[in-house]
Amino acid sequence: MKKIIMEIPEITQKLLAAKKAKNVSFADLEKAVGRDEVWIAAVIYRQASASDEEASKLLLALGLDEELAQELGEYPVKGLGPIVPTDPFIYRFYEIMQVYGMPLKAVIQDKFGDGIMSAIDFTLDVEKEEDPKGDRVKLIMSGKFLPYKKW
């Protein structure tokens, strides 16, 4: 059986190499670009598109040529593809949805009604919670509730 590996776009590889060479964090890039660190990471991984101004600020912060700005502004094809993710970190989110997806949907529908949480009108923040038993990852997702329409 052939192992399917998620392809990392060439531009993503260039951006990540420059980030590493400059020794900057996504939080540093947040300050330089004026956008949230998670959104900047989504641009770098080609899951979001940047305006000309945002792309210029990002490329300047990474010391890269402005010629990449056009590609960062193109509308990306989003998602991981039609595969179960094999990267352990990403797979855990897939597993979380397998286990808690239906319960989470039921609780949200109890509180809001029949609908979905937008992934378009959406923010995601990552926080580090220090804990003597081991630091914890805290994710804060906030999406607009979109009720299903009747017609």
Rank of each mutant, 00 (worst) to 15 (best):
Y45T: 10
I108V: 13
K144I: 11
A41C: 11
E30S: 14
K3Q: 14
A18I: 04
I90F: 06
W151I: 15
M141Q: 09
T123W: 08
Y45D: 00
A41E: 10
L15E: 02
E130W: 10
E10M: 09
A32L: 09
K133R: 14
V33K: 01
N23R: 13
A106P: 01
S56K: 13
L59F: 08
G63Y: 05
P76C: 08
E129D: 11
I4W: 01
T123Q: 12
I140T: 14
A48Y: 06
I140H: 10
D36F: 01
L124T: 04
G81L: 10
F93R: 01
Q98Y: 08
Q98N: 14
S49W: 01
K150Y: 14
A50S: 09
F26D: 03
K57I: 08
K22V: 05
D87F: 00
D36H: 14
K31V: 13
G79C: 10
R92M: 14
D125E: 14
L146H: 03
L60C: 04
P85M: 03
T123C: 06
P76A: 07
E54D: 14
A32Y: 06
D52R: 10
K128G: 07
R46Y: 01
E30P: 05
V24N: 03
V107Y: 09
L60R: 12
S49D: 13
M117N: 05
I96D: 00
F93E: 00
F145N: 03
V137G: 07
L68T: 05
E95V: 05
F93I: 03
M141R: 06
S25D: 13
A69N: 09
K78R: 13
V43L: 09
D28K: 04
W39M: 12
G81D: 12
E130I: 13
Y148T: 11
I83H: 10
V99Q: 08
M6E: 05
K150I: 14
Q70E: 15
D131G: 06
K133Q: 15
K31F: 12
E30W: 03
